[in-house]
Write a protein that binds this DNA or RNA. Sequence first.
DNA 1: GTTATTAGTGCTCATTTGTTCAAAGATTGC
DNA 2: GCAATCTTTGAACAAATGAGCACTAATAAC
Lengths: 208, 208
Amino acid sequence: MKQMTSRQSEILEYLRRFIGREGYWPSIRDVQEHFGFRSTNAVMGHLRALERKGCVSRIPGQARTFRLLNDDGLPAGTIETETIPVYGSIAAGYPDRVESSGEVGRLLVDIHTANIRRGGKTFALKVTGDSMIGAGIQSGDMVVVHPGIPRDGDIVAALIDGETTLKRYVHPRGGTPYLKAENPSYPELYPTTELLIQGIGRAVIRNL
Amino acid sequence: MKQMTSRQSEILEYLRRFIGREGYWPSIRDVQEHFGFRSTNAVMGHLRALERKGCVSRIPGQARTFRLLNDDGLPAGTIETETIPVYGSIAAGYPDRVESSGEVGRLLVDIHTANIRRGGKTFALKVTGDSMIGAGIQSGDMVVVHPGIPRDGDIVAALIDGETTLKRYVHPRGGTPYLKAENPSYPELYPTTELLIQGIGRAVIRNL
DNA sequence: GTTATTAGTGCTCATTTGTTCAAAGATTGC
DNA sequence: GCAATCTTTGAACAAATGAGCACTAATAAC
């Protein structure tokens, strides 16, 4: 992004605050009035400059149609976030994202914090039991889970006998994969009928 | 929120998607065109209904000025979030929120997930060491910390000898408070000169 | 049947709003 | 000093846009 004059930053900042506060964009005359200009053209000049410098984009001729752009020229103001449904337990198959059956809440986090990619069918589970205590996952913790193919050592949400459990996925070279609890008092789980991995654990969130 | 007809939900959903996709609100005629109405008044009718039912609010006579409301009648679409600075370590006193000295990143989470209140001087610490391993807090975890007065049993970020440590705060009835690690190989820490509590741990976030 | 609600058409109108032309003062760099 | 850019004024215009009136049709409620 090119160098901006102080006046131009002021205008940009006003736009940012306005949309944040009101939820819609200001009109040219809203900007004019706020800065005390006696002509709308003062605003126009600055907007042209901001557009030229790639900070803002607009739809010509249409009212209150701004877009804030960042350095890459992509729509900004939006740290990439995801709204993730939280399930207490999952019965079978992938949980339907729209359906709220068993959904006990939602969490909104940015994708870096949750360690996920966008647009996936990410979901979260509320952990019960102490089988993963050795990995620092306690009862009541929330685990963010992303569908995918697990690798040896990943913590996964797996479906065994119609119920979801959180375990470590172990896949020895040349052997068959199994599940391992991180607690000496729990046995290893070898797949009897099938081993359905619902997702790979990406993050743990705990409220203290 | 009162009962909505299916058509009204369609309109509402279109508004939601439009602002999410384009970043600005549609005009009445944008809505008209999308639904194939032959009159703008069809849209007006639905908008009046949505306003009456408290789903949407608008500024009369002004272009593209919507506000989505949720059940309480408060502006929606905005789950309350906080952008929290992450520090690797904190030297002394409260970290300056604006200053990025020692700031190693930021995380954006909704206030329920992070278990915090709005507007506070919340910050996060990247944990090093294994002194809290017994409480399920490992090296590399992020701990969200909120300033306040700790109670017995809280996990706190405390300043001891010019360095910040994460420990459990113990305050026996009638005694002096001290800090306790959740790891048998660490000793209890009794305040020698002073015990400055920088904040109370509210949440733990770990990337797997 | 009557009444109320929802869903629409068709048209007109007034205002909001973006845009343009012409011009001038201030500031900076050469 | 002079050119270039930034900043602002002032007036006028045309398109975009919300809003109102009259009327029709379907559906459900009483």
